[in-house]
């Protein structure tokens, strides 16, 4: 396959970036999208040019490191997969492919296609945990948890923190990510103890990071590679409402 790539190049956070055209040839449909970029990068290095910086690590859809806004959609044209799982057979010979970084005020660009997602870490630090110290736990089977709750908590917990929800959302809102964590912990008895403070603090941090407001467009859930459901956003809305109304602080 021969493809035209229009890739966002930006030296660093401060400098202006622009789309640059590249032609890649002899691309096998069995290649993954990132392997296609590897091929391009090798040829750039051989020419003495700077390779395209992009984030990736596990390349099997679980670490959440890869990103890329491909032809107007986070993680490319397929749903339920990350960029690293996308294969070139999803494209046709002669296609033009736009590749851009996640764009959000809260995710500043570091270089080319690499953005800084540390805002997510700070949101988790604001309350995305259960305060239990090592060694303080009781027997794991002491609290039975209804299977449906456990399954829902698990489904929410599969979020890989990739940020595609923010990238997809027209408002660059982080609601899906935050609500996934709030939901996971709110569904489990262990997490209920701190539920109120958790949701208040995490939302506060989310706002401080400069994410937009959710207007329920639902793009996040469609594009989420782990298919995190909008149920979680609704659950967080409930949790938050409860916490604000019924709060003695």
């Amino acid at each position: 396959m021969k493809l035209t790539l229009k890739i966002w190049r930006q030296k660093n956070a401060k400098e202006q970036g622009k789309l640059v055209d590249y032609i890649v040839d002899h691309i096998s449909p069995d290649m993954s999208f990132l392997e296609m970029l590897d091929v391009l990068n090798e040829s750039l290095v051989e020419k003495g040019e700077e390779p395209i910086a992009f984030d990736h690590d596990c390349r099997e859809g679980i670490c959440g490191m890869c990103s890329l806004y491909i032809n107007g959609r986070p993680h490319g044209p397929q749903t339920g997969v990350t960029t690293c799982q996308l294969h070139m057979r999803s494209f046709k010979d002669g296609d033009t492919i736009y590749i851009e970084p996640w764009r959000a005020a809260a995710f500043p660009i570091i270089k080319d296609l690499v953005v800084d997602r540390s805002a997510f870490d700070r949101i988790i630090q604001a309350g995305g945990y259960i305060s239990v110290n090592t060694g303080a736990a009781q027997d794991a089977n002491a609290i039975p948890i209804p299977k449906p709750d456990a399954d829902k908590a698990f489904a929410a917990a599969t979020c890989i923190g990739c940020g595609a929800c923010v990238a997809a959302c027209k408002n660059a809102s982080a609601m899906l990510f935050v609500s996934a964590k709030v939901s996971q912990l709110a569904l489990l008895p262990q997490g209920k103890v701190e539920a109120k403070d958790r949701v208040l603090n995490m939302v506060k941090q989310m706002d401080e990071e400069g994410f937009g407001n959710c207007t329920n467009t639902g793009a996040c859930a469609v594009e989420c590679p782990k298919e995190i459901s909008l149920d979680n956003i609704a659950r967080m809305n409930r949790e938050y409402l409860k916490a604000t109304i019924n709060n003695d602080k």
Binding site: L19, G72, Y98, E100, R103, A105, S173, F211
Partner: peptide, 8 residues
């Protein structure tokens, strides 16, 4: 929250 729009 998204000062820079996507080109595509």
């Amino acid at each position: 929250a998204r000062p820079h729009k996507y080109a595509y």
